[in-house]
């Protein structure tokens, strides 16, 4: 598969009261066309900043991004973002149908726009609610509208910032399966930022683990699970459990066991801190398996 997104040495720092705060400390990775890649990292590690940089909403202080070969400057034309807070990212003065049509207003005529929006609503199982207002729908349905809006735009890259962090667990499972289904049906390239380890393993073809700020890519894990996933059987499979533990360990600053680290994030950190985090992660694991260090 050709490379869709290439991020090279992307860094972002901003001025804080006590000098310059480095949020992202040089992140490099690629995403192939048709891939679903999850980015996990500890809270406050600059995941959202990374996503906004890739989307062109903020300019990174260094590094570069290319989207299907062309360097990104400002907001690229064929990119869509789904944010966590659906109630604040849907336009309350527009109906569901018109919300989905919104990004198509610039490029398409009325009839084609309407057809595309109706089609996208159908993909997410919301045909028939186009005439309602978004605030008349449940949270899960609102996020489906946001997903439909992004898909109707037919983006080369779909960026999602904690897309399911604001819905209840049941809805979350439904939306995860919905996302897997529609993005595979349309061979979408997706980058999902999440803090949820289970979600990253369940959704991803690959997982990028970030360190704390200034964040770097600690590991690039390939999810060795069949593409067809199931909320019950996938989550209880050995491969899932192993990968989840692996990701958790990496998140806690531990060394990867099975995968070579892309960059050595631990260098930047104080040895003592890494050691104690490692011990914490191990303690958390002892209930499940024997300590090996």
């Amino acid at each position: 598969m050709p490379t869709m997104l290439e991020v090279t040495d992307l860094g972002h720092s901003y001025r804080a009261k006590d000098g310059v705060h480095e949020a992202i400390g040089g992140v490099s990775f690629t995403v192939d066309a048709g891939e679903l890649v999850c980015v996990v990292g500890p809270s406050g590690c600059g995941k959202s900043t990374l996503l906004r940089s890739i989307a062109g909403l903020i300019s990174p202080t260094r590094g570069s991004t290319t989207l299907h070969g062309s360097p990104v400057q400002g907001v690229p034309d064929d990119l869509a973002v789904v944010f966590q807070d659906y109630s604040r990212s849907l336009f309350p003065w527009l109906t569901v149908q018109r919300n989905v049509e919104f990004p198509l207003r610039r490029s398409l005529g009325r009839a084609e726009r309407q057809a595309r929006a109706a089609e996208a609503l159908d993909w997410v199982g919301l045909s028939g609610v186009g005439g309602k207002y978004t605030w008349q729908l449940s949270g899960g349905m609102q996020q489906r509208v946001a997903i439909a809006r992004a898909l109707a735009y037919r983006p080369a890259l779909l960026l999602m910032d904690e897309p399911f962090a604001s819905v209840d667990a049941q809805t979350r499972f439904e939306l995860e399966d919905l996302l897997l289904r529609v993005t595979r049906e349309h061979a979408s390239t997706v980058l999902v930022v999440t803090h949820d380890i289970d979600e990253s393993v369940y959704l991803g073809d690959r997982i990028l683990v970030l360190s704390g700020a200034p964040s770097k890519v600690v590991a690039d894990l390939t999810v060795d699970l069949p593409r067809e996933r199931d909320q019950i059987t996938t989550r209880e499979s050995e491969a899932f459990v192993t990968l989840r533990s692996e990701t958790a360990r990496l998140l806690h600053g531990g060394r990867p066991r099975s995968t070579k680290p892309v960059t050595s994030a631990n260098q930047a950190e104080d040895g003592q801190t890494v050691a104690s985090r490692w011990a914490d992660a191990e303690r958390a694991e002892t209930g499940r398996r024997a300590t090996t260090t």
Binding site: R52, A55, L57, V75, P76, D77, L79, A80, V81, F83, D85, R88, S89, F91, F102, P103, R106, Y153, L159
Partner: peptide
């Protein structure tokens, strides 16, 4: 004005 609404529109190239 909600910043997220603006970001949403900007992300769609407005």
């Amino acid at each position: 004005l909600d910043g997220l609404l603006v970001e949403t529109a900007r992300a769609f190239g407005c």
